[in-house]
Amino acid sequence: MTNAIEAEGLRKSYKGHEALSGVSLTVPEGTVLGLLGPNGAGKTTTVRILATLLQPEEGRAMVAGFDALKQPKEVRRRIGLTGQYAALDERLTGRENLRLIGTLLHLGKGPSRRRADELLERFELSEAADRVVRTYSGGMRRRLDLAASLMVDPPVLFLDEPTTGLDPSSRLVLWGMIREQVAKGVTVLLTTQYLEEADQLADRIVVIDTGKVIAEGTADQLKQKVGTERLEVAALAAEDTSRVVAAIGARLATTPSVSEDGRTVSVPLPDGMGGVAAAAAAVEELGIEIAEFAVRRPSLDDVFMTLTGQTAREKDSA
């Protein structure tokens, strides 16, 4: 499999402050990379370099088979960019915005109009198409912005925090549109502060913080990196909790912890499924009714917490 995006050792400083200190990443063709990081991590800077908007001081970047630093025009023909903030002409209508992009891409009048209408339809903007963008809601702008970056059917798509600031339902709509692109074989680099978003959309995740890659892998690999799975058991009757603690503790030779409400008993599972079977047998022997018996894997939130020492932004705060 060839890589649609390859960045190596990207360095960029702003007035002495190093925004990127040697970021490397690769995105195989047709896959989605989630670039995950807190505010100020360097996500936008990375995207801007790959989308030919910014020159790094050091490093190499290949996008869609061309050098982003030396052949920017070739790269621009093959990418779609949806920036962190909607890049639209507020004083034009939605349709005019798309047609303008089509003209600037030299699609020709007919094809440009057809493509604009098609995208407006698909993105559920047909009704609002002839209103000026100034009157659009945040979700509508985001959709139109994504549509604008799809005017040429680019093989590589950059999405910089595409759902930041959107309400949950608009977010789901946008996710659906991104998945449609992925299904068509488009390579996507998506930045996000939302762990859930990376987990949902990305095949692989690169975590960056203060301009450095601090972890990468699939969501599962990252979760494993952080810690082992835990077994959580809750008895139906609260007074049985201590018996559960004793039974599981004896069988697995550890000291289980109990949740604050005194109901859920939890133990680490260093050797995976073997431990689950042993614990199940121990609980079975007690002959009590069990409300919950589950293996909980660390969430990306835990991953993030461990890696950056910061809580990731709350999923619903925006």
Binding site: A51, L53, G83, A87, L88, D89, L104, A148
Partner: peptide, 17 residues
Amino acid sequence: SNGLVDRFRSLPISRSA
């Protein structure tokens, strides 16, 4: 400020246009 310059610059058009 509304990001249009970024959008235009990401398109394959001449920088003078």
